[in-house]
Design a protein around this nucleic acid. Structure first.
Length: 828
RNA sequence: GCGAGAGUGGCGAAACUGGCAGACGCGCUGGAUUUAGGAUCCAGUGGGCGGAAGCCCUUGGGGGUUCGACUCCCCCCUCUCGCACCA
């Protein structure tokens, strides 16, 4: 190790030990102090932390330490999202038990997080694969089951052939598995669901009441929930009394333009409508053709639509017209009623289909004169629409619905795109679902006093498919909780997103034995004041956690409506233009980084290089720069220790202009750094303000050597250095603590008050006013602050240089912005 | 297609409610120190013209509002992300 650099490792290890020994960041509820719950998304214990972790935990740590210094009682916990597939895959590949693999990883990653100098209350650490953790979600599962919020049904689900398990809709990205990127296939299977759809409206409504969340995350959630308003009504099947096709539409006003109707190919009504074997065979062939297409092909853009005309026809109740009925691949069974009225005039999909199959097109809204498109989806006056003619689209929608309701033919209806959350996983490493199947009693929940249903250790993990739990006789066979007879346990486990849906509540009282959490502790700490994590969870974890919190509220466990008051979505860490990944070979290993430069440098660079919400382009030279800066701070403080220690306590304003100017820089830095942290977490500009302070400090040190009175010089140097260390503390805690103590302070920097700017120091005596002529800078004036407009105008017009730019036309007007600028507008 | 966000030096970026565009850092150039390298320090660094003072141009492109536009309005282009036949 070069002697030119400060002793990073010695210092960092020492302070990490001191903080731990002092239990400095352990907290208890204290009603006398304002609380601040600072939470970063907990990691999956994959083995080692990566740069994305360094970034998110550095961001959270700055905030937590800052809030400490601001006098808050800060809850800043850490834990492990410990269930999940990689542990099982490791078991298959290396023959190590998932539990062993997981706990080894946790031990290593915990030491890595400590080396980063993070201010966690480790006494609150939780691990979700611990039965003392998941027992509580088993309890909640039972309560949800009793209320119909957890239910079992057979349905077509997303199956990942590689992970050998079901995926929730939210876990499928463009037809592929969110984890392994395999193509997802539909599969008909029995499984457990959480009824998130019962909360669709509330989840949507609250999107408008989360001002601390980024708009793009709220938009993604709103889109995902996908509310649409319209009407549902019957199209009677011609000549088949009692049979009708139920359709949903958002445009009931266009009903007079319906020229055909469509059922989803798998719609159950189809089988009842077929007239003979020939048609049955045709339908079967069509269905097979549609089924052959993969999810990805089916969602490809501009794909031609395919349909099959059925022999049956339906009647448009609005005008009695008999219209053809199709089955077609562009109508989905999973949305609305699985059937539509087709209005080619106003719907582009219907237009495309009608053109292809030679079906008539009726326009029911007058086109704007410059309209050149095909189907017209916009507003306008209704035409060709009977009693709706002459109305606007909005009026006609209302009228059409009233008309349906009056005749008992249909009703207003709201539909959501959101589907229930499928939580069954056909895998081992997850929380067991506490349900038994009894031959006599059917589906029975485990008795609450028998919880937890512990995941057995001894299993054969083959990865061949099907839950390995099914082969564990001691687990599967259990007495029926109701009748005591023979019963079998459910062998699916819960989606790991269930654990992460409430861990923030468990942190409030992590060792609570009488329930999920201590209500008093949760009442004190919740909600999370600032949550920090990656954008990839915009509609996964963040939607599930909101839902689960509302369920817990409705079950009487908590009074909180929303778990996260404010959310910061940090950007990715990229290198050479791509996300860091082993396959691209562009990973930077945090261990190596810390070994070379130390944690303070790693933190400083990841905070300085970009604002937190943006992607961060990794740059090795930039890291050098961060390290260089810290070394400069170190050299300055250690090089002036005698002088700093001998400094007098400040009294009054500096006597020299130089001193006053420098003191203003010090206090302006306090203001800037505070505003940057409090505002939009723009730590990058906060760091640059600190760097500017150091630049000013060095300049002042040089300039004041022989010019300033020595007492004033020392006092200002001391004031500047103390402010510098206090401001730097949250970003680079180790070096700040070390230099703070070398200055002669006994206590920790983090028990100090965050500094406030002195208004007297901020006051400017002189200001530079820019003088423009026709908007171009032609000079500047130095004037006393708050000089009157007239005076500034006079002095600007008197300026010789400025006069030269005023042409023959003379001055038209003069705009004066006090303390800033004068703009002289000439007549041209 | 729909929705959201972004576009500023060689690079990461900054610019408060419209008021000196490019702070801070990286890189680069020159110099000092050094046997050398490293480290450190000093000066310079958007483009063009000029010996210099200085002048002109410049925030994806085009228009507009304004004394004044990176910032506000309209049109267009490019990129990123999300959803995607959702009736």
């Amino acid at each position: 190790m070069s002697t030119d650099r400060y002793p990073v490792h010695e210092i960092e290890a020492r302070w990490q030990r001191v903080w731990e020994e002092r239990k400095q960041f352990q907290v208890t509820e204290d009603p006398g102090r304002p609380k601040f719950y600072c939470l970063e998304m907990f990691p999956y214990p994959s083995g080692r932390i990566h740069m994305g972790h360094v970034r998110v935990y550095a961001i959270g740590d700055v905030l937590a330490r800052y809030k400490w210094m601001r006098g808050f009682n800060v809850l800043h916990p850490m834990g492990w999202d410990a269930f999940g597939l990689p542990a099982e895959n490791a078991a298959i590949e290396h023959g190590v038990h998932p539990a062993v693999w997981t706990h080894e990883n946790i031990a290593y990653m915990r030491s890595q997080l400590r080396k980063l100098g993070t201010s966690y209350d480790w006494s609150r650490e939780i691990t979700t694969c611990d039965p003392d953790y998941y027992r509580w979600e088993q309890l909640v599962f039972i309560r949800m089951f009793e209320r119909g919020l957890a239910y079992r049904r057979r349905s077509t689900v997303n199956w990942c052939p590689s992970c050998q398990t079901v995926l929730a809709n939210e876990q499928v990205e463009a037809g592929r598995c969110w984890r392994c990127d395999s193509e997802v296939v539909p599969r008909d299977i029995e499984g457990w669901f959480f009824k998130i759809t019962a909360y669709a409206e509330e989840l949507l409504q609250w999107c408008d009441r989360l001002p601390g969340w980024p708009e793009r995350v709220l938009t993604m959630q709103r889109n995902w929930i996908g509310r649409s308003e319209g009407a549902e009504f019957d199209l009677p099947v011609a000549g088949r009394p009692g049979l009708a096709v139920r359709v949903f539409t958002t445009r009931p006003d266009t009903a007079f333009g319906m020229t055909y109707a469509v059922l989803a190919p798998e719609h159950p009504l189809v089988d009842r409508l077929v007239t003979d074997e020939a048609e049955r065979a045709a339908v079967a062939a069509f269905r097979a053709e549609v089924a052959r297409e993969s999810e990805i092909e089916r969602t490809a853009a501009d794909r031609p639509k395919r349909g099959l005309r059925l022999r049956a026809s339906v009647v448009n109740p609005f005008n009695g017209a008999v219209i053809p009925l199709f089955i077609a691949d562009y109508v989905l069974m999973g949305y609305g009623t699985g059937a539509i009225m087709a209005v080619p005039g106003e719907d582009q999909r219907d237009w495309d289909f009608a053109r292809q199959y030679g079906l008539p097109i009726i326009e029911t809204v007058r086109r704007p004169p410059d309209w050149t498109g095909e189907a017209y989806p916009g507003d306008g006056v209704k035409i060709n629409s009977g009693f709706l003619d002459g109305l606007t689209v909005a009026e006609a929608k209302r009228r059409a619905i009233d008309w349906l309701v009056e005749r008992g033919l249909g009703e207003a209806r709201v539909n959501y795109r959101l589907r229930d959350w499928g939580i069954s996983r056909q895998r081992y490493w997850g929380a067991p679902i506490p349900i038994l199947y009894c031959d006599r009693c059917g589906m029975v929940p485990e008795r609450e006093e028998n919880l937890p249903v512990v995941l057995p250790r001894d299993v054969q993990i083959s990865g061949k498919g099907g839950s390995p739990l099914a082969d564990v006789a001691t687990f599967v066979h259990a007495p029926c909780p109701k009748c005591g007879g023979r019963a079998r346990r459910e062998t699916d486990t819960m989606d790991t997103f269930v654990e992460s849906s409430w861990y923030f509540l468990r942190y409030c009282s992590p060792r609570h034995g009488a329930g999920m959490f201590d209500p008093a502790a949760a009442a004190y700490w919740m909600p999370v004041d600032q949550y920090i994590g990656g954008i990839e969870h915009a509609v996964l974890h963040l939607l599930y956690a909101r839902f689960y919190t509302k369920v817990l509220r409705d079950l009487g466990f908590t009074k909180v409506d929303e778990p996260f008051q404010a959310l910061l979505s940090q950007g990715m860490v990229i290198k050479d233009g791509a996300k860091m990944s082993k396959s691209k070979g562009n990973v930077v290993d945090p261990d190596e980084l810390i070994a070379k430069y130390g944690a303070d440098t790693a933190r400083l660079f990841s905070l300085f290089a970009a604002p937190p919400e943006k992607d961060l382009e990794w740059n090795d030279h930039g890291v050098e720069g961060a390290s260089r800066f810290l070394n400069r701070v170190w050299r300055f403080v250690t090089g002036h220790l005698d002088e700093l220690r001998a400094a007098p306590t400040r009294s009054g304003a500096p006597a020299t202009d130089e001193g006053r100017r420098f003191r203003r820089v010090i206090h302006e830095t306090i203001r800037r750094v505070t505003d940057d942290i409090e505002g939009d977490f723009h730590f990058n500009t906060a760091v640059s303000a600190i760097m500017e302070l150091v630049n000013a400090l060095q300049a002042f040190e040089q300039a004041s050597l022989d010019r300033a009175p020595q007492d004033e010089r020392r006092a200002l140097l001391r004031e500047a250095v103390e402010v510098l260390l206090l401001l730097l503390g949250p970003f680079c805690p180790h070096i700040a603590e070390e230099l703070w103590s070398r200055l002669g302070h006994d206590g920790s920097l983090f028990t100090e008050q965050w500094p406030s700017p002195d208004p007297a120091a901020l006051r400017k005596e002189e200001v530079t006013v820019v003088v423009q002529v026709d908007g171009k800078v032609r000079g500047r004036l130095t004037v006393a602050a708050d000089t009157s407009e007239e005076e500034v105008r006079r002095r600007a017009l008197d300026d010789e240089r400025v006069k030269g730019w005023i042409g023959a036309g003379g001055v038209a007007r003069v705009v004066v912005v006090p303390n800033r600028l004068v703009n002289i507008v000439t007549r041209r």
